[in-house]
C-alpha cells in the first residue's frame, strides 16, 4: 500500500525555500529551507511573531505557501493535505479553543479518536480504553467525568495533550501546549510526551517559546525568526551569538549538568497567559 510506504518515509519535514504570506501582506515566513529525519521529537522555538504557528498551519494545509514547498512524511502540504491530516493529531494554540460548550473531559479526550472516524463517530470500548489511558498519562484520570469548561487553564492544556495522546497517527503537533500551565503541569506534559515518544516512536512536533523545560527530552530544535535561524540538537542551537541575534542582546547561555540553557528577558514568563 502506497500510504504505508510513505509513512516509512525517512524525512519528517522537508521545506524548500518556503514563503508564507497572510492576506494583509504580512510575510510571516520567508525562504525557509530545512529537513528533519523521522522519527524525532522536534521543538520549534523563536520569539513571539516569529512564524512558529504559521509554519505548523502550513504543514497542515491550513495556510498555503506563496512560494516554495513543504512536505510532511513525503506528502506535499499544498496538494496532499488530506493525506497529512490523516497522519496528524493536532493541539491548536490555546486561544483557539472555545469553552462555552458543556463537554465533559472524556468527550474532549475521545474527540482525538472520533475525529479520525467517519460519521456517526461512535466511541467503541477500545476508544474509551485509549482515552482513559491518555488521561492517565497526564495524571488527570480522576477528572474523566468532570465538565471541561470548569477546569483551570493548566488542566485544560493537559486534557488537550491527552486528546492528542489518545489518537492515532504517526505525528503529534502541539502549538504551545504548556502556555498557561504552572510548573507542575508543565512537568506532567513534558514527561507524558517524552514517555509516549520513547514508547511509540511517534513523531512529536512541539511549538514553544521556551526550550528550557523540554531541553533534555527533544532530539531536534528548529529556531525560527521569519526564516530558519538554526537547526540541530538542543545544545548546538544554544549558541551565545545565535540567541543574542534572535532574542536580543540581553539573552545569554548558562551551562548546567552538561546541558546549555538559554536565558532571555522573558524566560519563565508566559505571555499567552494574559
Amino acid at each position: 500500500m502506497e500510504g504505508k510506504h510513505l509513512t516509512n518515509h525517512p524525512h519528517l519535514i522537508e521545506a524548500e525555500s518556503l514563503s508564507v504570506k497572510y492576506p494583509n501582506g504580512e510575510l510571516a515566513l520567508e525562504d525557509v529551507t530545512f529537513t528533519t529525519d523521522a522519527s524525532t521529537f522536534l521543538a520549534i522555538i523563536g520569539p513571539n511573531g516569529s512564524g512558529k504557528t504559521t509554519l505548523v498551519k502550513t504543514m497542515l494545509g491550513l495556510l498555503k505557501p506563496c512560494s516554495g514547498s513543504i512536505k510532511v512524511l513525503g506528502y506535499d502540504a499544498k496538494r496532499e493535505y488530506n493525506a497529512i491530516r490523516r497522519l496528524v493529531r493536532y493541539v491548536p494554540q490555546r486561544d483557539h479553543i472555545q469553552h462555552n460548550v458543556p463537554m465533559k473531559v472524556k468527550d474532549i479526550v475521545l474527540m482525538g479518536r472520533l475525529l479520525k472516524k467517519s460519521p456517526p463517530r461512535f466511541a467503541s470500548d477500545k476508544d474509551v480504553d485509549y482515552a482513559r489511558d491518555a488521561l492517565r498519562r497526564v495524571d488527570l484520570e480522576e477528572l474523566w467525568n468532570q465538565p471541561f469548561p470548569e477546569l483551570s487553564g493548566g488542566q485544560r492544556q493537559r486534557v488537550l495533550v491527552a486528546r492528542a495522546l489518545a489518537g492515532e497517527g504517526p505525528i503529534l503537533m502541539l502549538d504551545e501546549p504548556m502556555s498557561g500551565a504552572d510548573h507542575d503541569s508543565q512537568v506532567r506534559i513534558v514527561d507524558a510526551l517524552h514517555e509516549y515518544h520513547e514508547e511509540s516512536q511517534a513523531n512529536i512536533i512541539m511549538v514553544t517559546h521556551d526550550l528550557n523545560p523540554i531541553h533534555i527530552v527533544v532530539k531536534d530544535v528548529l529556531m525560527l525568526n521569519r526564516t530558519v535561524m538554526g537547526i540541530g540538537h538542543p545544545c548546538e542551537i544554544m549558541d551565545t551569538e545565535l540567541v543574542k541575534q534572535v532574542y536580543g542582546p540581553t539573552a545569554y547561555i548558562v551551562e548546567l549538568d552538561g546541558h546549555k540553557y538559554c536565558i532571555t528577558h522573558d524566560s519563565g514568563i508566559d505571555d499567552h497567559d494574559r
Binding site: 497542515l60 491550513l62 460548550v101 463517530r121
Partner: peptide, 22 residues
C-alpha cells in the same frame, strides 16, 4: 441526530477538527 458530534466539534475547535481530517 446525524451531525450532532460534528456541530459540537466545530463549535469547540474548528481548526483542530480540520487538522484531524474532518
Amino acid at each position: 441526530i446525524l451531525f450532532k458530534k460534528e456541530f459540537v466539534y466545530v463549535s469547540i475547535d474548528m481548526e483542530g477538527s480540520t487538522a484531524h481530517g474532518m
